[in-house]
Design a protein around this nucleic acid. Structure first.
Lengths: 124, 124
DNA sequence: TCGGGTACCCACTCTCAGGTAAGTACGTCT
DNA sequence: AGACGTACTTACCTGAGAGTGGGTACCCGA
């Protein structure tokens, strides 16, 4: 695994939270799972344009270790795995929402463009 | 300079905000400046145990470019430079506070320790 | 039989954030 | 004279995060 997380010591709460959301796709995964409630691996991959399978798996595993996402495996012939947010994951997403608003505001201020985004783009 | 920021395109607001707070010490700098209102370079260096001068300067410059901090230079014989948060910086800090609370909560849940954080002694 | 779908694992490569250590110019303290 | 303080700048190096491209085991439709 990458480095199995540091889990402190931290300078402050923000440091601790950042440790958990650090990763190119983690906030997006959080967002995606929060919007859809539950998503399969391939659905997530399609929902995050540009993510590689390796990074997606790696991030999902780390977030599972961190207690943010729940992984439900169905023993079926075509494999089926469903990912969803735990309570902690949901609360983290809530905590991130104000940051998201700030970012959106900032994007408008500076006229930054948004990435094209796939069919099922987040509501924001 | 490092890479002079990406400034989009972003997937969403969180992405845009993360682009700006990404950096090992940026949240701490924000925190420090918010707490003290205005700080000199050396004060910041002492306030962030472990930061190197290079990274501190680099982060401060990027945050200045991003419109988060204001840099006031006094033409004096012993140089004096004061850093403070702009309105955007203050609002970002506010937006980060909920994330900070979440992180603090998480630290308590998992009993993670906090870094010693002495004001001017390296402890090591 | 071939291609496509599921959900991964593994080895290799590479970029860049961050760390280390030195130098600059000027002044005060000891 | 030399150490220490201010606020930086510059060059070099390392390591982890991320990307690339392959393989696995199974099944389904054409």
């Amino acid at each position: 695994m990458a480095k199995s997380a540091r889990r402190g010591p931290y300078f402050c709460g923000i440091d601790a939270a950042m440790d958990v959301v650090a990763g190119k796709w983690k906030p997006l995964i959080l967002w995606e799972l929060n919007n859809y409630g539950t998503r399969r691996f391939a659905e997530l991959r399609r929902g995050l344009p540009g993510v590689s399978e390796k990074m997606l798996i790696q991030h999902l595993r780390e977030m599972e270790e961190d207690g943010l996402v729940h992984r439900e495996v169905y023993r079926q012939v075509p494999p089926k795995v469903e990912y969803s947010l735990t309570e902690q994951g949901v609360s983290l997403n809530t905590a991130l929402s104000s940051l998201g608003k700030w970012g959106t505001e900032r994007m408008r201020r500076m006229g930054a463009e948004k990435v094209p985004a796939a069919v099922d783009e987040p509501v924001g």
